[in-house]
């Protein structure tokens, strides 16, 4: 499903990310330190992280072969559920990722063992 990036793809990606990272950072610190921002835009900016992360996570966890899969056979779902629990207990990023990956491999080993 996932494709491997060519050398050209990689450098195009580097260029895209460089611009997409620098422009928002430079917006007020470098380009326009005294630019007034409309109030609605300032308020909308506050919701960007809250909206973007779930939109990135949900398809990676719940979509299996193009369809929503909420079965016990979805090992990604089990791994994410454990990671979410650890995250709620204020684990740092590294602990959360570790917990999720360990769960992923344990559940996959369990499923392939046929128990």
């Amino acid at each position: 499903m996932a494709t491997t990036l060519s050398t050209l793809d990689a450098w195009i990606l580097i260029a895209i990310l460089s611009v997409a990272s620098f422009l928002p950072r430079a917006s007020f610190l470098w380009i326009a330190p005294n630019l007034p921002l409309p109030e609605p835009l300032k308020r909308a900016l506050r919701f960007v992280p809250a909206a973007v992360f779930p939109a990135l996570i949900m398809p990676a966890i719940l979509i299996n072969d193009g369809a929503i899969d909420i079965s016990l056979g979805n090992t990604h779902l089990a791994a994410a559920a454990v990671a979410a629990l650890v995250s709620l207990r204020r684990g740092n990023t590294f602990v959360v990722v570790l917990a999720g990956m360990v769960t992923l491999h344990l559940t996959q080993a369990w499923h392939s063992s046929g128990l």
Binding site: F47, P49, A50, A51, P54, I57, A83, V96, G100
Partner: peptide, 27 residues
């Protein structure tokens, strides 16, 4: 799969009140 898990670890920090919870759920 570390990638979505990393994002998952960030959700708790970005969701602080009712409005951000709704933004997360709808997203």
């Amino acid at each position: 799969f570390c990638v979505p898990l990393t994002f998952l670890a960030m959700v708790a920090a970005t969701v602080r009140d009712r409005a951000t919870v709704v933004a997360a759920v709808v997203g």
